[in-house]
Amino acid sequence: MARNLYRQAPVSAAAVAVILLVFAVTAVQSRSITGNLDESGLGDAWVLYLPLMDDSPFGPLRALGSGLLHAGIGHMLINVILLYLIGRETEWTFGSPLTAGILVTGAVGASAMVLWRSPEYPTVGASGAVYALMAVFVAIAYSRKNAQVGGALVLIGVNLAYTLMTPGVSLWGHLGGLATGTILAAVLLTARRTRTRWFGLCAVFALVVAAVLIRVAVFSTGGSGIPLL
């Protein structure tokens, strides 16, 4: 079964495997599958939290590493199921390498939004990357004018409603991933050549990375940035 899932969507399956491995490490370190980040060295090193991001040259990498961490097995399972199912559709359309780029860019874009809008809250999870995939999937369905677009919009709506109603869920992380995915969708569906698509994806990636680095630099120099919400 695992081999079949990998053949259908190798990047999505690999991303799920990495998330499962990271969860297993944190669970072993904390000796818990529900409080797996409570006493986890890996969790402490990768959680997205602005005050900890200027303590070393590798601090900004939390913007990506935090997307592999999850708080509890339920949080992790929801994200990996959505990631695989939506990621598979994206891989069938754009191919595995571009899908990998969407996942990474979506995760960093979501982290950038969190750092600018709610940096006082430690944040983890692959939801930002998943929301980026959702936005791309909606655009794919719309471009094909098929019935999937309605289901994709409902999926986004239900997830956003859950975000608003559930305490402790990062609204800004989800919105950041959705916004990044929307920009990526416009770039990928407008461009006809693979080279142009890669150029556009790299440009968006550079922008979200710059947003992260600027936010860390502003914080490290004592600046407040924009008002916190």
Rank of each mutant, 00 (worst) to 15 (best):
L98W: 03
P51N: 01
V47W: 05
S66M: 11
G59D: 04
I81Y: 02
H70G: 07
F94N: 10
H70I: 09
G59E: 04
F58G: 06
A71W: 13
D55S: 11
Y84K: 00
M53F: 00
F94S: 10
L61E: 06
D54H: 13
L69F: 04
G65T: 15
T99L: 00
V80G: 05
G95N: 11
T90N: 11
I73G: 05
T99R: 01
L61C: 04
P57N: 13
T90Y: 07
S96C: 07
S66H: 14
I73H: 05
G87N: 00
P60A: 03
S66L: 08
S56L: 02
G101W: 07
I81F: 03
R62E: 01
N79K: 15
P97N: 09
R88L: 04
V80P: 08
M53C: 01
G67M: 03
L68M: 13
P51I: 00
L52V: 12
L48N: 04
L61I: 09
G95Q: 10
R62S: 01
S56I: 03
L50I: 05
T99K: 01
H70F: 09
P97M: 09
I78M: 09
F58H: 11
L64T: 10
P97Y: 09
P60K: 04
L69P: 09
V47D: 03
W46Y: 14
P51K: 01
I86N: 04
L64S: 07
G101K: 13
G87Y: 00
P51A: 00
Y49L: 08
R62V: 02
L77S: 12
Y49C: 06
F94T: 12
M53H: 00
A63F: 03
G101V: 11
D55C: 06
W92C: 08
G101R: 11
E89V: 09
F94Q: 12
W46L: 14
L77P: 08
P60N: 04
L83S: 14
I81D: 04
E91S: 05
Y84L: 00
V80S: 05
H75T: 11
N79S: 15
I73P: 05
L85F: 14
L77T: 11
H75C: 06
N79E: 14
Y84R: 01
D54A: 10
L50V: 05
G65Q: 12
E91F: 03
L83K: 15
A45H: 08
T99W: 00
V80K: 05
R88W: 01
N79A: 13
L48F: 03
R62D: 01
S56W: 01
W92F: 12
P57R: 12
V47I: 12
S96D: 05
T99S: 02
A100L: 15
A45M: 11
P57V: 15
P97W: 08
P51L: 01
W46S: 14
G72H: 07
I86S: 04
I78N: 08
D54F: 02
L82H: 05
L69K: 10
L64C: 07
L48Y: 02
L85H: 13
R88E: 02
S66D: 13
H70K: 11
L68S: 08
L52Y: 14
F58Y: 14
A100C: 08
G87D: 00
L82R: 06
L68F: 15
G59R: 10
L64M: 12
H75Q: 11
G65I: 09
G95R: 14
A71C: 08
